[in-house]
Design a protein around this nucleic acid. Structure first.
Lengths: 120, 120
DNA sequence: TGCTATTACTTGCACTTTGCAAGTGAAACC
DNA sequence: GGTTTCACTTGCAAAGTGCAAGTAATAGCA
C-alpha cells in the first residue's frame, strides 16, 4: 500500500511558481545553490558558510538536490570516499532566481553586501 | 531578560540572498505575493487559491508582510471591519523574483502552466 | 425581531521539519 | 599507534505546518 507522500514532496498546484517553491521554498536550499555557484564543492566548505547550516540539513538537502537533478556528486580526486558536489545545467539555470533575490536584498535590506561571486 | 528572538526572525548573515530568504524563504509567502500581484485583495480570495493555504498561516503571513512593509491593509470600502490587502512599492519590486521563479518552473517542471497574470 | 449565512479570523492539537549537540566510522597525518 | 579531519548520522527539543472547529461581527431575509 503506497504511503501518502510527505507534504514537502507533494505538488500543490500546477502553477510554476508554486512548483518551484515546492522544490526550493525553504530557508536553506537556495543558499546551498548559491555556494555551489561560488565554487564550493565539498561538504566541509558548505558547512562552513556564515549562515551555519546544520550538517544533517545540509546532507538531506544535497540528497534532495541530487534527486531533483540540480546537483551531481562526483567522487573526489583528492580523497577516497569523499564526494564533490557540482551544479548540473539544470541547477545552473537557477542563476536568474538567485540574482533576483540578491538584487532585491541589496535594494531593500539594510546592511547587506555581496561577498560571494559566481564562478564561471 | 530579553528573550532570544525566534529562529525565523534572526538574520543569519549579511548576504543579500540570505536576508531575502529570511523574509520570504518559506512555502507560502511568495504565493501570497503572487496572488496580490494577480489582483486578489481580500482574505477569502487568498484562502481560495488552489494551493489551499490554511487560514491561520495566511493570517500570520499577512501580519509578517505588513510588518516588513511589503503589504498594506486598507479598510474595505464594501464591507466594514474587513481589510483589503495591497502590495506596497517595496512589495511590487518583488516582481523580478516571482518572474524568475515562474520562468524556471515553466522550463524545468513538467505540467506547469501559468494561470494568473499580473495586474497593472 | 429573530434566524441563517458569510467573512475574517483564532484556537487547539497532531504531525512534520528544523536546530543543536554529540556520536560514529573511515581515511589521513604524524 | 594515536590523533585529526571529514562526512555524515542520531537523538531530542523547539518551531512551523495542516486540519478541523470555534467565534465574533456584519448582512440578508422573513
Amino acid at each position: 500500500m503506497s504511503p501518502r507522500p510527505k507534504r514537502s514532496a507533494r505538488k500543490r498546484s500546477p502553477c510554476p511558481v508554486s512548483c518551484t517553491l515546492d522544490l526550493l521554498g525553504d530557508r536553506w536550499t537556495l543558499l546551498i545553490v548559491r555556494d555551489l555557484f561560488a565554487g564550493k564543492a565539498r561538504f566541509r566548505d558548505l558547512v562552513a558558510s556564515p549562515e551555519r547550516i546544520a550538517s544533517n540539513i545540509l546532507a538531506e538537502r544535497l540528497v534532495r538536490l541530487q534527486a531533483g537533478g540540480l546537483v551531481e556528486a562526483r567522487a573526489s580526486a583528492e580523497r577516497v570516499g569523499s564526494d564533490e558536489y557540482h551544479l548540473t545545467p539544470k541547477g545552473r539555470s537557477l542563476l536568474p532566481v538567485l540574482a533576483a533575490l540578491r538584487d532585491w536584498g541589496m535594494l531593500h535590506v539594510r546592511g547587506t553586501q555581496t561577498l560571494v561571486r559566481v564562478k564561471p
